[in-house]
Design a protein around this nucleic acid. Structure first.
Lengths: 158, 158
DNA sequence: TTCGCCATGTAACTAGTTACATGATTCC
DNA sequence: GGAATCATGTAACTAGTTACATGGCGAA
C-alpha cells in the first residue's frame, strides 16, 4: 500500500483501482482490508489524511505519504528479505522507490535461495505418483525463475 | 489438514512433521495454527480426538477423520474451484482421496482459466520498465503451468 | 429504469504469525 | 553437558475474507 501511495495523494477508492490495474497479480486486497489499513498508516505516522468535501459526490479521504512513510517503503524494499516470490515481484515493480544496488542484492539473494531450493527438490524421492507430479512442477519452476531473475538483473542494471 | 489426517490417526505433532516433509511447498502452517485448528475439526464433526497417556513422554491427543471428515476432503477436492495455483497442487497431491474424473475436470478448468489469464496479460501495455519486467514473468509462467497441466492430466488419466 | 461508477465504512469471521511457556528423554 | 526429539498449548497480533449498509449521478 505504501508503494501505491508513493504515486501521490490518493483515496482508498483510487488505491483499490490502481492495485487492480497494476499489482493485482502479486497482491490484491479486499476493499474492506484496504479501508481498514489506511487509518493504521496514519496512526503509525506513515501517511496523512485530508478530508475533501464534494458536492454531488460522496466526500473523500485523501491520503498522502509522510517522509517517514517514504522512508518505510524504501526500508522494506531495500532490507526485508522477501518471504514469497510475489513479494519479490512487488519489489521489482516498485524498484524506482529504492536504490538500484539494494534491489540487485535482493534479486541475487533470492536467486541463491532458489538454487538451494532446487538442490532440496533434487534430493526428494517421491513416495507416490501424485507426489512425483507436484515435485516435478517445482523442478520446472525454479529454472524459469532463475532465468527471469538473471534477465531482470541485467535490465535493472542498465 | 484433512488431507494429511486421511493417512491415519495422528497427533498434531505428527501432522506438523508430515506437512513439512510433504506439502510444505504448497502449504505450511505454524505450529500454533495447527494446534488451533484441530479442536475445530472435532467441533465440526470432521474428526474424533482420543487422549493417549504415555509414560516417559508427554501425553498425546490423537485425531482421526470421521466419515463426515472423509466426505469433506472429497467434497473439497472434487468441487471447490482452486483459488490459487498452490491449492491446485495440493489437490493433485491428495488426488487419491477423490474420483479421477472430478480431479481431471479441476485440471481442465484451471487450464482454461490460465489461458484466459494469458490473454489478459497479452493485452496489457506496461507503463514502466519495472511493470514490463513483472508482466514478462507472468507471460513466461503461464505456458510452464499449461505444459505441466497437460502432462499431469495424462499421468492422472493412466 | 437499470446498470455502473463514485465513495466509505462496519461486523464477524478465518488464516496465519511470533513470542511465551513447560518439561522429560535420548543421543552424541 | 548440550542439542535434538517428543509433545501441547496460550496470547497478542497482522492479514485477509464475505456480507451488510448507504446513496447520489450519469449514461444507455
Amino acid at each position: 500500500m505504501l508503494g501505491l501511495l508513493a504515486e501521490g495523494e490518493r483515496s482508498g477508492y483510487d488505491l483499490l483501482k490502481r492495485a487492480e490495474s497494476s499489482v493485482a497479480h502479486m497482491w490484491s486486497p479486499a476493499r474492506s482490508q484496504l479501508y481498514a489499513v489506511l487509518p493504521r498508516l496514519v496512526d503509525a505516522g506513515l501517511a496523512r489524511r485530508r478530508n475533501v468535501r464534494q458536492a454531488s459526490r460522496p466526500d473523500k479521504q485523501l491520503y498522502k505519504l509522510t517522509a517517514a512513510g517514504r522512508e518505510a517503503v524504501r526500508h522494506w524494499l531495500e532490507t526485508a528479505a522477501p518471504k514469497t516470490w510475489d513479494e519479490l515481484l512487488l519489489k521489482v515493480f516498485f524498484a524506482r522507490l529504492c536504490s538500484r544496488a539494494a534491489l540487485l542484492r535482493q534479486l541475487d539473494d533470492y536467486a541463491e535461495r532458489q538454487r538451494e531450493q532446487l538442490l532440496e527438490y533434487e534430493a526428494i524421492k517421491p513416495a507416490t505418483r501424485h507426489g512425483a507430479l507436484t515435485l516435478q512442477y517445482g523442478l520446472e519452476l525454479v529454472p524459469v525463475r532463475l532465468d527471469w531473475l538473471a534477465r531482470a538483473r541485467k535490465e535493472l542494471a542498465r
